[in-house]
Amino acid sequence: MDFLSGHVPEMLPGNRSLPPVQGAFEAPHGTTIVAATFPGGVVLAGDRRATMGNMIAQRDMQKVFPADEYSAVGIAGTAGLAIEMVKLFQLELEHFEKVEGTTLSLEGKANRLSTMIRGNLSMAMQGLAVVPLFAGFDVDRGKGRIFSYDVTGGRSEEQGYASTGSGSLFARGSMKKLYRDDLTEEQALTLVVQALYDAADDDSATGGPDLARRLFPIVTVITDEGFRKLTDAESSEVARSVVERRLQEPDGPRAALL
């Protein structure tokens, strides 16, 4: 990135001049991303919907991307800018790895992403914010970790679970009641799909599992074996079992009252 800014600065997201805009500017926005840790790793998942104002811009958008072998990033906010940011982030991690012969630490990667979000601040002030969620397996500590960000690039590590995007409040409420710190990998997968279902239930900009079009949330797992994206078959199986249960209990599993 430093090399790029020296040579072709116009290729970097933060260095473009913006046309003055009046009022709200509409571009496709991605919506909800959720993540949860379990002993041995972390899961990161996102719904598939992109919206433009009150319209659905895209039904099958991909919002969760591998950053490198041991980390992934999920994006919420202006889709075009976010995808470009992820592309540049992936490139930077790979470039560092090839040039230095070693990978960045998870903290290093999280900090790098923070700087990139801060670079987008002027865009964010015009309503084109990008707020990713970063999750990875910390090889040194042997556990999964989650980092959340605000529009100014402020970074904070989340314990257990986190969410970002328009449906994040509902997803967080859902996970708050369902999360335990001894989940198995499969339970963690169900947890994030439940959370996405709850987000889609109450937030119009978040898409739920689309059984008719066979569009299911994108779910990824990162463990000491690296990044793995669930295949369509696997993710549809989790989503179908959640939907199946909701046919009996539309509000989802109940937590104990006391």
């Binding site: 090839k98 230095e100 012969g101 070693t102 090889v139 690296g226």
Partner: peptide, 15 residues
């Protein structure tokens, strides 16, 4: 086995 650079642990930052 990590599929990455063999030099991963040798502190290649100092190379």
């Amino acid at each position: 086995g990590t599929g990455r650079e063999g030099a991963a642990e040798t502190g290649a930052g100092e190379t």
